[in-house]
Design a protein around this nucleic acid. Structure first.
Lengths: 214, 214
DNA sequence: TACGATACAGAACGAACGTTCTGTTTGTCT
DNA sequence: AGACAAACAGAACGTTCGTTCTGTATCGTA
């Protein structure tokens, strides 16, 4: 908060000292525990006690690294948004045929579902997302992060495809639809417990929307 | 729970006595308060105290009508699923042209968003939905209700359109996609705070998917 | 080597949670 | 009229919550 951090002239390579490494490891264990707890028990039941037990550390260590629960959730949310989540490029992104492009988009959407949304991290993020809607303190801390992430992800997705003939804002809109759909699907398990049925729905949706990428 | 209710021969019109009416009104006020609290404060912060204050009744009255919080959530969830949520038929559902049918579906999707999902009730349902994922006790009580509702809603939506040339299971799939998308959009407000932008996204999505209804 | 900061440990805090309990009032039914 | 059950009121329960605190060990540095 008060760290200047503005490009100071001293080079200062980020070599972590033993103590710093220790802290990093501890913080990592804690955030990992938060994600697991959010996934398994939900936001309401993710208490300090549970996190502490899950991380296998003492109450004092936890409060030392994260003085408040809000801080804990903010850091966890930032961690969850970190791998900015663009499917890995496996082949050329300059496509020869429309069919190639369509099936590439299709595969990427399935990849997003399996690797990003239908995961511990995806479900944990949903918990935080829903909680943030009504928690004004949390909202004040991380809403800007969410908004910035949303902008960045659309840019990088569009840049990943090099589509001509489709306006950029239309591309952004389509990718946004994908994310909204996949996030919604994470709550569909109550209505459709069959995991395969939901996977099938992802594929159908992917096939449908992929054809819109001109 | 123990009311037989099976078509008994005695006519017995459901005339509620004064006391029964009193109870109905009270329960209604309470459930209403739960929905409001869920919308405004989220599941984690919807406490007995808050509900009681919001409903303007005593602690005793609340526990009398709903002996546990779980009971309260179950009844509220059932209430939220009650208006089985098919857009009102304004005109003929036998369409002359494809354009007519497309724009009818389009309008219905927008109607669902505005009247069912982007509402107090829609947001309250999302809160319960997310909480149910991890609350095993709650899940045991209402998951079956969710599954049954999901089946019923698809049937009634399909019946509302009388589409030939499109397999019924394909129709169900399309409508399911709509619901999943709209539910996901309820969590999009963190990423896209602009309400108009989200409305525009609904319209775009509706336009896209409506064309799939052959 | 000594000093200070950081990492950790755990007790103690008041507040809030959901539930249970004992009363009091008020309709309903014979 | 009288008995009974339902509607309501509110105190009290033990538990758990997140935070604050005092104390100890360890590491970096002057």
């Amino acid at each position: 908060m008060t760290t200047p951090d503005a490009a100071s002239d001293r080079p200062e390579p980020p070599i972590a000292s033993r103590k710093e490494q220790q802290a990093i490891v501890a913080r990592d264990r804690i955030v990992r525990a938060v994600i697991d707890c959010l996934d398994e028990h939900g936001y309401a039941e993710t208490s300090i006690n549970r996190i502490q037990e899950r991380a296998g550390i003492s109450r004092g260590a936890l409060t030392h690294h994260f003085p408040s629960k809000e801080e804990l959730m903010v850091v966890t949310a930032e961690r969850l948004l970190q791998p900015t989540l663009v499917p890995p490029r496996k082949g050329p992104r300059q496509f020869d045929s429309a069919e190639q492009r369509i099936s590439a988009v299709e595969a990427d959407i399935v990849w997003m579902w399996e690797r990003l949304v239908d995961t511990r991290e995806g479900r944990a993020l949903l918990e935080i997302l829903v909680a943030t809607r009504t928690d004004v303190a949390l909202k004040g801390r991380i809403s800007e992060t969410f908004v910035r992430w949303n902008r960045a992800i659309n840019e990088s997705l569009a840049a990943n495809y090099l589509l001509h003939g489709l306006a950029e804002d239309e591309q952004r809109e389509l990718w946004t639809m994908c994310r909204v759909f996949l996030r919604g699907l994470n709550t569909q398990s109550q209505f459709e417990p069959d995991h395969h049925a939901r996977s099938a729905l992802v594929r159908s949706f992917a096939r449908m929307i992929a054809t819109r990428f001109v």
